[in-house]
């Protein structure tokens, strides 16, 4: 079944088409969400939400962008919403903590290790993922889509509505910031390791 046919069948609410969409895309969506939010359970929830949203809005889908760009865009938006919500909760928890109530216990998952990282690189990857969390939002998205999901710059540009040049510059700045962050990390921890 080609993409156009799949979209038509999805718009007709055909269950087999929906199953095909989920089975064909679940790993890509999950991996993207996992790279962005670095939390396995939340990434699975987001993956489910992406398919629910996709099915609900398939009627409005225009074939201007491919189904892949559309699904990735929904995933990025949902993941960013989730991160912002988490940040707000953390801030609220901090306020409660200052006021002496029990708050600020939001799990930030400091030792996230992506399950697809090679065994001998796990330690370095955990440090890198921690540095990725400190990147500005757009840089974090672009870097994660490029390095974790392995998307080319042109595709990232379509997802973020940016030119390829803008994505390249985002990635460049992300790498510079990561380098700075990692250098300072290793300088501060040189005697421990």
């Amino acid at each position: 079944m080609n993409e156009t046919e799949l979209i038509v069948r999805l718009q007709q609410k055909e269950e087999a088409a929906f199953r095909q969409l989920v089975e064909g895309w679940k790993d890509r969506i999950y991996n993207t969400a996992l790279g962005l939010i670095q939390q396995a359970e939340d990434a699975e929830d987001i993956t489910q939400d992406v398919f629910v949203t996709a099915l609900g809005s398939i009627g409005e889908f225009r074939a201007e962008s491919g189904i892949s760009t559309w699904l990735y865009r929904i995933t990025v938006n949902k993941s960013i919403d989730h991160l912002r919500k988490k940040k707000r909760k953390k801030l609220f928890g901090l306020v409660l903590l200052i006021r002496g109530k029990n708050g600020g216990q939001e799990n930030d998952n400091p030792d996230f290790i992506h399950p697809g990282v090679q065994l001998e690189k796990k330690q370095e990857a955990a440090i890198l993922f921690s540095a990725i969390r400190k990147l500005p939002e757009q840089q974090r998205i672009a870097y994660s889509l490029h390095k974790v999901e392995g998307l080319p710059m042109a595709e990232i540009g379509k997802i973020l509505n940016l030119s390829e040049g803008a994505v390249e510059s985002l990635l460049q700045r992300a790498k510079q910031n990561l380098r700075k962050s990692l250098l300072s990390y290793y300088q501060n921890n040189r005697h421990e390791r």
Partner: peptide, 12 residues
């Protein structure tokens, strides 16, 4: 650390 994501497998 910067190269630690090279050869990353997609999570299932």
């Amino acid at each position: 650390a910067l190269n630690s994501l090279d050869g990353l497998q997609r999570a299932a």
